[in-house]
Design a protein around this nucleic acid. Sequence first.
RNA 1: GCCGAGGUCGCAUAGCCCGGUAUUGCGCGGGCCUGGAAAGCCCGUGGGAUCUUUCCCUCGCGAGUUCAAAUCUCGCCCUCGGCGCCA
Length: 424
Amino acid sequence: MLDMSMFRDHADVIRADHDRRGLSHDSIDEVIRLDDEWRRSRYDADQLRKQRNEAARGIAEAKKSGDESAANEILERVTDIGAKIDELSLYSDECLSKRDSLRMGIPNILHDDVPVGEDDQKNTLLSLHGEKSEMKFEPRNHNDLIELNGWVDLSRGAKVAGSRFYFMQGDLARLDMALQQYGSDFLIERGYTLVQPPLMMNREAYEGVTDLSDFETVMYGIKPDEYYLIATSEHPLTAMRMDEIIEPSELPIKLVGVSPCFRREVGAHGLSDRGIWRVHQFTKVEQIVICNPDESWDHHEDLLTNAIDLWDSLGLHYRVVNICTGDMGTVASRKYDLEAWLPGAGSYKEVVSCSNCTDYQANRLRMRYRTSEGNSAVHTLNSTAIATSRALVAIMEQYQNEDGTVAVPEVLRPYMGKEILESL
RNA sequence: GCCGAGGUCGCAUAGCCCGGUAUUGCGCGGGCCUGGAAAGCCCGUGGGAUCUUUCCCUCGCGAGUUCAAAUCUCGCCCUCGGCGCCA
């Protein structure tokens, strides 16, 4: 959520941002109008409250000195003031809540270097890492590999839960655990604190970290309790300091979260999504930074560097892209993706997403740090380290052999105790 | 789940019984003092509006009673202690 001062003093910046995104200015104008209306009615109500408080003080004074008639006289003058205040307050509260629910839907201001474009076709290539391995055979896609080796039981997953649920078993399940262990060790080594978050969050905390439309398309709601299963540990880890004022000496806060992630994936269909590429539940190792606003762009580069070093160490071929305006979403100001090469699919596909959300989440979460000029919003950043299901797909497709076996990446062998994954 | 005690400004604390301007300490920031510092002293330290001077809101959340609620009443949430259940 953008700070109100942006709308009052720099509305031109928001308008220019909407132009880059191809959005109309209607909701900006409406926020400004409602703000104006709120301030006006709020001021009027405050003046009435002032009268009421003065009268209340007068009554207290009169009663203290035993002058009942003076007290009654004041009382008579202000009998209907309460009703007037209620009426005005109701209106101003309405303006305020309309203003803010509209404001929640207005996206973050994009960084200047975000390329303009309608969809992911316009994302720009930043760098290439590793090399396409020479395969003297027709590479299988991961869906064929899991079937051939018996590592994933999709049909029984569908039976006991639903489509896109699965049982992962044998050496692939072990490799999943090895990736979690390796990924978190890698970041602990770099000064991140390992955190296991709650896997459900309440509505208020959740609204602080995500786009409202995600409640319909992404998150599972838990009834009868008003809980939501987390779609990523980014959400609880970022919301962790909600409603807090953080001492500057505590910054930057660097966390590595490991958790299952739950996603409804409403509207996602198609052949390209077979197997475990797009599923309702997977495990993810996530990096989080909460920092001073002056440092967030440096931390953004650091998060990307961590992801790059980690994926390089796995010996995988991938590319880094700069996400364009149309592919950006509401919360991030700038986002890099890592896209791994999938020989079986013959394409690069998203495995890591690295975002600087600037003060957008912090404003919603009322998450501030102390400065000599008062309290001001921190910046929040997040980046995938390893989403295990997708890393597994990349490993299976890039490390596959002609006979359908799959080699274990060098750095994971100590965790696995073997060089080749065994089939079931 | 049951019983009991609690939730007050960054932290700690007073006020609640008996309704009438949110107390004090610590921490932090600024100033005075000093060759410099410590100590000491003074001011500031939740959010918002504003005609720049003042005002309004804020005592876990919500509703009610009242001219007036941190204070009284009701409901809910959370924390701590005890009991029960339990990996």
